[in-house]
């Protein structure tokens, strides 16, 4: 006889939330702070997720899609997202004013294995919109600074005006307890005070104990190969190289199948994968 299963809360039911704050980071990328309306859920939900997890955000009659959480559970209260206007749902989302209602489900996904990273040096490489999930982990590490070894954060953008969270990183650069390096591919206006070139050039500044380093990369697909090679040159083992991936998802719970790669559902087995996973599951990257 099959095991009887208890019928719990409906996992497809979204939670009502409001956009409490929004502003443009670049021409087509906007920052959203979204607060769950139910006061009983605000703290439990916003303090217990893992960096690297995502939420399903929906607008009725438009649709639902997954978005990386860019805030950290160490600063609970709101969920933050960094969203590019690229499709039907995001176009509608960009039309919404502050205090508009949106709907959230989640958090979903495995997130970064933060507990495995404790005691290790951390090396982040972010490119373009890839900063969204990495900012969550970076802020989490900075808020729990004593738990980690050295922290290096490398961030590349096409031009100065394309750099997401630019001012925030300028301020973070001033901190003494971690190393933050920013670069742009080109600087048409001649205003950029830091490195100019591709993000992998910034590896010249990196001094970590490679065997005891968790290296994390997120960015446009073309970036992965070059950055992963740099990690391997440093000597970081396959299972300590993490990357977070993007796929089409309709449920977020390992059911609808649209994010499937090989035998992995990116929504529940990912979106964070190690280089070892990537080597053994064809089609992940």
């Amino acid at each position: 006889m099959l095991e009887a299963k208890k019928i719990n809360k409906n996992p497809y039911m979204p939670e009502k939330a409001r956009i409490v704050r929004k502003y443009d980071l670049t021409e087509d990328v906007r920052f959203f702070q979204i607060r769950i309306i139910n006061p009983d859920l605000v703290l439990p939900l916003t303090s217990s997720y893992k960096p690297g997890q995502f939420m399903m955000l929906s607008i009725p009659n438009v649709g639902e899609a997954p978005f990386s959480i860019t805030s950290t559970p160490s600063r609970p209260g709101v969920f933050e997202f960094c969203i590019r206007k690229v499709g039907k749902l995001t176009t509608k989302l960009f039309e919404l004013k502050e205090n508009s209602v949106v709907w959230l489900r989640g958090p979903f996904g495995n997130g970064f294995p933060v507990e495995q990273m404790v005691g290790k040096d951390l090396l982040f490489v972010a490119g373009g919109l890839g900063v969204a999930p990495l900012r969550s982990l970076l802020l989490y590490a900075l808020d729990n600074r004593e738990l980690f070894g050295k922290i290096f954060y490398l961030h590349g953008a096409r031009t100065p005006k394309d750099m997401l969270f630019r001012e925030e990183f300028f301020r973070l650069k001033e901190r003494d307890d971690f190393e933050c390096y920013l670069s742009v591919d080109s600087d048409p206006l001649g205003v950029w005070p830091f490195d100019i070139g591709v993000v992998t050039d910034l590896f010249k500044y990196v001094k970590v104990n490679a065997a005891n380093t968790a290296a994390v990369v997120c960015g446009p697909p073309v970036m992965y190969k070059f950055v992963v090679n740099k990690f391997l040159e440093l000597g970081v083992p396959d299972n300590q190289i993490f990357m977070t991936l993007e796929r089409k998802m309709k449920c977020g719970m390992g059911k609808c199948g649209q994010c499937v790669v090989g035998h992995k559902y990116v929504c529940v087995d990912g979106p964070v994968f190690t280089l070892w996973d990537v080597k053994n599951i064809r089609g992940l990257i």
Partner: peptide, 16 residues
């Protein structure tokens, strides 16, 4: 189907 839909986040529609 049962294994699949009752794992992780049990699908309430399927179970009913």
């Amino acid at each position: 189907y049962h294994k699949f839909y009752s794992r992780l986040y049990p699908d309430t529609y399927y179970l009913k």
